[in-house]
């Protein structure tokens, strides 16, 4: 019994460890809006060291530095766009999960929309061609035969 208790306690402590290490930063915000902006900004930036982890979720020293900087800049009254620009200037577009819409990324953002439109166009053309084919593609001989067949069925 004591052994089971010991094992389950150990397991629970191990499970709780990540929460410990992730939750040590306590920050004070002037208002809930700024706090929400801080959360959104740190969740939208990718840690430049670790692969595919947001800086709010990463234990890397550089992520801690970046969170500090976001906090400082927020308190200095900078806008979200300014803060994002500040980070991109230093760490490159890589830090953004969502690339900004600019000339370089028109293709990236536009491609899904473009592909959808092309697909729609292709489907529409195929449907139109089919409809066309079913009524007009018969030669006069075939039309005569079709007419004869229909009349033969209707006759009795």
């Amino acid at each position: 019994m004591a052994l089971i208790r010991l094992i389950s306690l150990t397991v629970l402590i191990c499970l709780a460890l990540p929460a410990w290490s992730a939750g040590i930063e306590l920050r004070e915000f002037d208002d809930p809006v700024t706090e929400q902006r801080y959360r959104d900004l740190t969740a939208s930036m990718r840690c430049p060291l670790c692969e595919n982890q947001a800086i709010d979720d990463s234990d890397a020293p550089i992520s801690a530095d970046m969170r500090d900087r976001v906090y400082q800049l927020l308190n200095a009254g900078q806008s979200d766009t300014e803060i994002i620009h500040h980070m991109v200037q230093r760490f490159g577009d890589y830090v953004l999960y969502n690339p900004r819409l600019e000339r370089r990324t028109y293709l990236l953002w536009g491609l899904p929309v473009g592909l959808l439109m092309v697909t729609g166009l292709v489907v529409a053309l195929i449907v139109r061609a089919r409809r066309h084919a079913s009524t007009k593609a018969l030669t006069s001989d075939e039309q005569a035969r079709l007419k004869a067949l229909i009349e033969r069925k209707e006759a009795p």
């Binding site: 430049p48 060291l49 890397a60 020293p61 550089i62 530095d65 900087r69 230093r90 760490f91 490159g92």
Partner: peptide, 12 residues
């Protein structure tokens, strides 16, 4: 404090 490093985008 790694301040210049930050300006340089140094990650380690």
């Amino acid at each position: 404090e790694g301040e210049l490093g930050f300006e340089l985008g140094v990650i380690g």
